[in-house]
Write a protein that binds this DNA or RNA. Structure first.
Lengths: 231, 231
DNA sequence: CGGGAGGTTGATCACCATCAACAACCGTGG
DNA sequence: CCACGGTTGTTGATGGTGATCAACCTCCCG
């Protein structure tokens, strides 16, 4: 019987703690060890005590982006919809404190817990944006940006797995100059890409200027190399 | 007597609410209106109800970067050390809910509040990284990255205003390949920049390979166009 | 000592920022 | 209604910058 991945997941200092009688457990990771993977169920929040971790995300075609470097004193293990949204690997021998999420829940104080989950979602969204900025081509960035405005996509806690209408009319209330700045491009490049998308039939302009008609949302999504698996 | 900035800050629907008898206040912003500015005291967390906001950061030399676009359902107004770390401007007519931070504090439940503040700090750190990726030159990015490893800089809640020793020996436990990926550069470019920094005397290599000696921290900080005002 | 990962340095070229000129659109006020 | 100016968007020409390819070197580990 073989173990598929020979990198062990955890290296718990005291084996007796493996079923967490306490809310905090100290773990020691060797260099290269994986703390968690993208899409794993998010049971813990981790706090780095010593060493350093990297968080990385991957595009469907394999392009990888390190979205954060986690040094002592910082947290990781954030989730959106109770799943991790990136992989976490130790860059050196690293000690972390694992905080059980279950133990963080305080009965009767739902507001803060809700807030905490929303903050985590926003961190995950920032990571996605970092992936976009670091790995995607200008065309992909613009397409990804446009997807934000399609109802059902991009809203908080959107899994983007739900069936969505194939076409949509969207309104972009942002100038190309601001879009360009946000995407790390020049205004001219954004304009050229918008023209290209129109020429290729991915978007059409409605009469009222900044309104766009998108005939095939999935096509735009694929054009933007997004993780949209409308199963 | 003149008012310096004629753009009013808030446009409170009901003027009677201006001293918040409740924890939530609804505000309506006109296009171009400023919700808050970088370094303002962070009294509120905002939730966008309709419209859209941009968050922007600025480098000492004036380069600006939009670090996030905030759509309905998302939050903004995050702080590090109780101050906002970016400016927030409405891109269109926008309605937000202002949540008083004071009201979020629940007596006896400090753990979650602490967690919430740390999550906010991490979001602010992500914004800073987005500014780095969007506006800084490759040289500045590498210098900024190196600054992370200097004791006293880059740690959570570090205001980077405290007096720090002028020189330091740091250890970079990360391969140039990973540094390059994280900074959106090629490995070769990172290597060339490291050589350049050595040639210019900003850093020196210690015997044990990945250890660097930095003779003048402030110089490196300036080289990275960071907001380090060691007053 | 040998192998492999990690780092250095040079040569080349594609891509996108920049500059520039123009066009479309949106207010405002006559 | 049109005239006008300013903002925003479009399109072309050009050049600099950093990715890429390639060869070599260094360090570390067995």
């Amino acid at each position: 019987m073989h173990i598929k991945n020979n990198r062990t997941r955890f290296c718990i200092d005291n084996p007796k703690l493996s079923h967490l009688p306490q809310s905090e457990t100290k773990l020691t990771l060797r260099k290269g060890q994986v703390l968690y993977r993208d899409e794993d169920a998010a049971a813990y929040l981790y706090e780095v005590v010593s060493g350093v971790l990297k968080l990385e995300k991957i595009l469907p075609d394999g392009r990888e982006q390190i979205v954060d470097i986690v040094s002592p004193g910082w947290l990781c293990g954030f989730s959106s919809n109770n799943h991790y949204t990136c992989s976490c690997v130790a860059l050196a021998e690293t000690v972390v404190l694992a905080h059980s999420r279950a133990a963080l829940r305080v009965p009767g104080v739902e507001a803060l817990t809700d807030l905490e989950q929303r903050l985590e979602s926003q961190i995950c969204a920032m990571h996605t944006h970092t992936l976009t900025m670091g790995q995607k081509t200008p065309e992909e960035r613009v397409a990804t940006f446009l997807m934000r405005f399609i109802p059902g996509y991009g809203a908080p806690n959107c899994s983007s797995k739900e069936p969505v209408g194939k076409s949509s009319t969207i309104s972009i209330p942002i100038s190309q100059k601001d879009i360009a700045n946000y995407l790390g491009l020049s205004q001219e490049t954004v304009s050229r890409i918008m023209s290209k998308l129109r020429y290729e039939g991915l978007v059409m302009r409605e009469d009222s200027y900044r309104d766009l008609y998108i005939s095939d949302i999935c096509k735009l999504c694929r054009y933007g190399s997004m993780n949209c698996d409308p199963a």
